[in-house]
């Protein structure tokens, strides 16, 4: 992990942190007790960070969601599940590493967990294609979902992708069709599905594993129909307007709750999920278990109808169709 990475808006924290280091060095060199000042400084750092993270703009949340130290699907699987049995491949073309998954247990509860996976260095980024799946990734995800459905295991998806991969091979193997088929087939899956946006919710590439009975979003994650940069380039003719575009597109958890497109925001630890994986995992786990408990009381018919009804009412317009 690149521990040095910091976001521009965190600079007040870093300034205080370097002051703290100076204080500590001074105290050691001079052998003077400044523990009171040091504790004050630590409090101030904590407060400053909390203030910043409590008031992040949409564009700043995008930065946090893309933080290279942010926990990815495999981090959550390792820290919040046991007995993980990974499943590989779409049985047609290959094993797309941008979408990973398999059987796992969360507090003993069996689930099929499926998620986007990004890399942390060149090698793993090449392997996972920076979290951007090809068609075979979506087909692999659907295969895992159908497997779970057949053996009555509820499904959890963790979403964190800039989008489906835009490339020649993707088009030649019909990325659009792969996503579309997932959308349709997910409405035939009879086990509960819980979807969580853990980082980046990049448009159709996110939606391809985003059809569920519950849509949860982590506090600093975002979900958008187009990247703020892409929107700025088209509507403002300039990527420098990405912050305005991020604001206008209404992409944060709060926005999605208001638009009735998400059910719940999962709180992140102070300073964001990357500051404390254990705490972030704990919050995610609690949210998944709580929602599973509710969904587990429903019959297969009710699960199907619930999912249909949920998406059926999405959209805003004036007047009535009848």
């Amino acid at each position: 992990m690149s521990a040095q990475f910091s976001l521009p808006f965190e600079s007040p924290v870093h300034k205080l942190e370097s002051k703290l280091k100076e204080l500590e060095a001074f105290s050691q060199e001079q052998d003077i007790d400044v523990s009171h000042e040091i504790n004050n400084m630590k409090d101030k750092i904590e407060q400053t960070r909390n203030n910043i993270y409590a008031n992040l703009t949409a564009w700043q949340k995008v930065q946090v969601a893309r933080h290279p130290n942010r926990p990815y699907t495999m981090d959550y699987i390792e820290s919040m599940t046991t007995d993980f049995v990974e499943i590989h491949g779409d049985r047609i073309h290959r094993d797309d590493r941008a979408i990973v998954g398999g059987f796992a247990k969360i507090d003993g509860q069996k689930v099929m967990i499926i998620g986007s996976q990004k890399g942390r260095d060149t090698k793993s980024n090449v392997e996972t294609n920076f979290g951007c799946a090809h068609p075979e990734g979506y087909r692999k995800a659907l295969r895992m979902m159908k497997l779970a459905d057949k053996f009555n295991v509820p499904i959890v998806t963790l979403i964190d992708t800039k989008g489906a991969y835009a490339g020649l091979e993707s088009e030649e193997r019909h990325i659009a069709e792969a996503i579309a088929v997932n959308l349709r087939e997910c409405f035939n899956i009879k086990v509960p599905i819980i979807c969580v946006i853990i980082g980046e919710g990049g448009s159709g590439g996110a939606l391809g594993i985003g059809i569920g009975n519950r849509i949860l979003i982590m506090e600093h994650a975002y979900y958008s129909v187009i990247s703020p940069e892409g929107c700025a380039a088209i509507l403002w003719k300039d990527r420098a307007f990405s912050d305005q575009a991020a604001e206008a597109l209404k992409i944060t958890g709060k926005d999605l709750l208001k638009l009735k497109l998400a059910d719940e925001i999962i709180p992140e630890p102070q300073g964001g999920a990357h500051a404390d994986l254990q705490k972030a995992s704990e919050n995610l786990k609690l949210a998944i278990l709580k929602n599973l408990e509710e969904l587990n009381t429903m019959s297969a018919e009710e699960i199907l109808q619930d999912r249909y009804n949920k998406f059926r009412v999405m959209g805003e317009f004036e007047g009535s169709v009848e």
Partner: peptide, 26 residues
């Protein structure tokens, strides 16, 4: 593609229409 002016409401129309097609096919 999407209607950017409607943000995520636009994206979810993909899901909604696909859901209806699942039942039409069924």
């Amino acid at each position: 593609g999407a209607r950017m002016y409607e943000g995520m409401l636009s994206l979810m129309q993909m899901a909604k229409t696909s859901a209806a097609l699942a039942r039409h096919a069924e």
